[in-house]
Simulated assay, not measured.
Amino acid sequence: MRMVPMAEADLDAVLAVQAACYPPAMQEAADVVRARLRASPDTVLVARDADGICAYLFAYPSRLGKVTPLGSRFTLPDRPDTLYLHDLAVAPRSAGQGVARRLTDAILARAGGLRHSALVSVQDSRRFWESLGYAAAAGDGVALATYPAGALYMARRLSA
């Protein structure tokens, strides 16, 4: 399995993984996904196995405490201090193979001196994120409310 930067040609495969992992209310439109890739291409990765794309991770430089509302485009700040992991999804065929951890490790290696990483935990993923050093943190409650019940803003300090 290889972790590589996403290309626009991968969009259909990424949307198929998204559809396999999220209920319709959490699926984000193709134009928004494309805009996110264009906004921060160095922090969008896909995992490829023998059958093609089996996972993806969208991240971007942000500020600690800022939450990207579900379905919104990335807004890049002038002075980022945080690598925000907006969306990580693994196709069911690759579940349990460590793909999520490998993608996260690969993207954090691209943090470029940022002091923090943050995300919104959904679909009972809190334990997974805690195993990677994330903990519940204060975040934009208005933006967090765009996610399903139980969503939790989490952050961790990175070594700069």
Score class of each variant (00 low, 15 high):
residue 90 V to A: 03
residue 94 S to K: 01
residue 145 A to T: 07
residue 62 S to I: 01
residue 87 D to K: 08
residue 99 V to E: 13
residue 110 R to T: 12
residue 139 G to K: 09
residue 130 E to W: 02
residue 120 V to Q: 10
residue 144 L to F: 03
residue 48 R to Y: 00
residue 117 S to K: 10
residue 112 G to M: 04
residue 117 S to P: 08
residue 47 A to I: 03
residue 81 D to Y: 04
residue 60 Y to W: 10
residue 52 G to Q: 13
residue 52 G to T: 11
residue 131 S to P: 02
residue 140 D to C: 02
residue 140 D to Y: 03
residue 43 T to C: 05
residue 107 I to Q: 13
residue 113 G to K: 08
residue 86 H to G: 06
residue 83 L to V: 05
residue 123 Q to R: 14
residue 41 P to L: 05
residue 43 T to A: 01
residue 113 G to I: 03
residue 54 C to T: 14
residue 135 A to W: 01
residue 130 E to R: 15
residue 61 P to V: 06
residue 115 R to N: 05
residue 58 F to Y: 14
residue 141 G to Q: 15
residue 89 A to K: 08
residue 142 V to M: 01
residue 145 A to W: 03
residue 144 L to I: 02
residue 51 D to V: 08
residue 83 L to T: 04
residue 94 S to N: 09
residue 85 L to H: 06
residue 49 D to I: 04
residue 86 H to M: 03
residue 74 F to V: 05
residue 81 D to E: 06
residue 60 Y to K: 00
residue 114 L to I: 12
residue 76 L to D: 06
residue 144 L to Y: 05
residue 134 Y to M: 10
residue 100 A to P: 06
residue 118 A to H: 09
residue 49 D to Y: 04
residue 60 Y to V: 02
residue 55 A to M: 04
residue 95 A to H: 15
residue 56 Y to D: 03
residue 121 S to E: 05
residue 47 A to R: 13
residue 71 G to K: 09
residue 107 I to G: 02
residue 130 E to D: 01
residue 52 G to M: 09
residue 103 L to V: 12
residue 63 R to S: 13
residue 70 L to A: 08
residue 60 Y to I: 01
residue 105 D to L: 15
residue 142 V to P: 00
residue 50 A to W: 00
residue 88 L to T: 07
residue 106 A to N: 12
residue 89 A to I: 08
residue 54 C to H: 00
residue 139 G to C: 04
residue 123 Q to S: 12
residue 125 S to R: 12
residue 122 V to P: 06
residue 101 R to Y: 03
residue 141 G to I: 06
residue 106 A to M: 07
residue 141 G to F: 00
residue 57 L to M: 12
residue 119 L to I: 06
residue 93 R to T: 15
residue 76 L to V: 14
